[in-house]
Design a protein around this nucleic acid. Structure first.
Lengths: 225, 225
DNA sequence: GCATTCTTTAACGTATACGTAAAAAAATGC
DNA sequence: GCATTTTTTTACGTATACGTTAAAGAATGC
């Protein structure tokens, strides 16, 4: 079913998609090395498209190509986490502001509203996977509504880099009930066209997330996720 | 002389360096298409390293690979300019703030001071090339002092994307005498450890640059540089 | 003369081959 | 037994070959 569009995807594109998935899911563990020929065998193709894919994923900060050492899956330290959350804070807050300036209709904001509803439900049922998914959707959609394609791309890239670490901390941290209050406030501000409010609320939201996540990483000495 | 370090660079790396240079300098004009085989012939190597380099430059937003159409050098519209300056505004302002928080010594800030001196001189002699170079140095060094490697990389990427457009507007706009006052104010704030001041002054600086540049582009109908 | 189908061309995607150089293993000397 | 040199291995960087297929051009039918 999902193999259908494989027909139109080149091997290089499949390799990018599959390797990215294997990295963010942890199937290729952080810090591990993998020969190009191994990956090629795993993916059932020759080295050429694997190399091309690896170069692209290197540009996206997911791995590093080291001659004769193989492809290294980049681990994420708490310092990396700080860098990334600082960037997410600034760019997402701007997106929130711009979304509020855009004068979107209720229908335009349907996905954002849905992500909030999904998170409510996830918290009620204490389903952490669902919570993470709803959280991801909210942030992604918020950035999309911001209308800056490059911010979208950068935020997606940064999100990929921290996805593994976030997944880990998810089961350590307390149930994040506060998050959805923040989302709701940002949503309201966007609905009512209050850019500064949207900006500042989202900014606070991200600053808190940074503090919590980096706190957990440092407390548990998780310095290479 | 500059060929010495070629010895240690792979063809792929040379291709990245040379193609990037040819793009930002305008030698490969915006909007033009180039076959992989042509580029390979130009650079004196086979298609393989050229393809690898093109994929990396595609990730950096400098070109687009379109099957059978060749590699397309991406033009920059005034809308692109807005997107990019919005990102630069946020990330550089944060860098300025962090630099002010870091408590750097006079020596640490020598390069930043030098860039201001260079710009003074450039304005005095009305040397626009030198002005642009000093401007670039100030912003690059500021971001470096901010201490966030990812912001450094993103800002470098965005700067590359607008370099051609900036070079063009440089000869249309009035001599930017105000810029260095801003730089000096940011520098002072960093010296004296006033993060908010550094942040806000730099933010204003970038917002004005955005308005001026986008204004020129739209006024002159320059929508594809 | 125009639309349509067929043929031809050529650019790309990718497999493969191979030289090079780094790392590992083996051999040598002390 | 350890350090040093030599040999072997092997992973990579890159040239090359080739099938596929999209686009351009030619031929056909109306």
């Amino acid at each position: 079913m999902k193999d259908q569009d494989n027909k139109t995807l080149s091997n290089t594109q499949r390799a990018v998609r599959d390797l990215r998935q294997m990295i963010v899911s942890g199937e290729l563990a952080a810090g591990t090395d993998h020969l190009e020929s191994e990956l090629a065998a795993t993916l059932g193709m020759s080295r050429t498209p694997v190399r091309e894919a690896a170069l692209m994923l290197e540009s996206k900060g997911l791995l590093e190509m080291r001659p004769r050492k193989g492809v290294r899956i980049l681990p994420v330290s708490s310092e990396d986490m700080r860098e990334i959350y600082d960037i997410l804070t600034e760019l997402e807050s701007l997106a929130a502001q711009r979304a509020a300036e855009a004068g979107y209709s209720k229908e335009d904001l349907a996905v954002l509203a849905a992500s909030i509803a999904q998170m409510d439900k996830a918290i009620e049922t204490e389903d952490l996977e669902a919570w993470a998914k709803a959280d991801e959707l909210f942030h992604q959609e918020l950035v999309r509504l911001g209308g800056n394609k490059r911010i979208e791309a950068i935020v997606a890239m940064m999100s990929d880099q921290v996805r593994r670490a976030r997944a880990t901390t998810l089961f350590i941290r307390p149930l994040p009930v506060k998050s959805n209050e923040d989302h709701r406030a940002v949503f309201q501000a966007i609905c009512e066209g209050r850019p500064d409010e949207a900006h500042d609320r989202h900014r606070e939201h991200r600053l808190q997330a940074k503090a919590i996540l980096c706190g957990i990483l440092e407390k548990h000495r998780l310095n290479s996720l």
